[in-house]
Amino acid sequence: MGEAIVITSGKGGVGKTTTTANIGAALAQAGQRVALIDADIGLRNLDVVMGLENRIVYDLVDVVEGFAKLKHALIKDKRFENLYLLPAAQTRDKTAVSPDQMRALVGEMKQEFDFVLIDCPAGIEQGFKNAVAGSDKAIVVATPEVSSVRDADRIIGLLEAEEKHHPSLIVNRIRPSMVKKGDMMDIDDMIEILAIDLLGVVPDDEFIVVSTNRGEPAVLNQQSKAGEAYRLISRRLLGENVPLMKLEEEGQGLLGRLRKMMGIKG
């Protein structure tokens, strides 16, 4: 019996889809059987981020409505041994499925896969409720910006109200040089404000744009900093106790903090 994890954020554009694609790919690289579900019905994007957009025949709504069998709708990613995508419907909307239907679908998929990752749409309405319904755990993605942290706080409140998702945080697109100047919140600031466990930190990386252009998850590239961060996160999801990614240019430890506090450029 696998585990279903929803990747959510409240705010749009903070990297939910990229995070879903890369954690999924990294888990598959680590030998896990992984299925990704795009729960953003009407605005699907996980297919293009994964580079699988030309292979869609059936989608999530087809499966839920019984037009297609799950195994016919799942797209196998040929670059990874055990990675599959269940795409969202593009010509329907959020009301095409119900939380109960999602719960049943995810439950069925957990029989087959070690991990079922659900890419949640932005917002807190029905799309969010659907995406969360079948999940055991939640990952909240937030960037170090006021708007993103505020929305993340709202999402965490909604998840904690249900007392079953144990949300953990991924701080995305952190820029060490700005953190050093005091112009960007650091990981400690985010944890302090959101009062939630940290799952990982992903540095801002131009390579993500390249990887999205090509439809190839960044974890396929050994040079990508973000790719490395997602590999570490996936190992943490597998229960390994790996340290946080070292961010360049950021003062670490007591000396670093002291420098940061006194504004000494180290």
Binding site: R150, V179, G182, D183, D186, I193
Partner: peptide, 20 residues
């Protein structure tokens, strides 16, 4: 370093989150 804008961000967030 009075222009360290993250402190402004944190203070504004604290207040807005209390309301939220």
């Amino acid at each position: 370093r009075e222009d360290a804008s993250k402190e402004v961000a944190k203070e504004r967030l604290r207040l807005v989150l209390v309301h939220d």
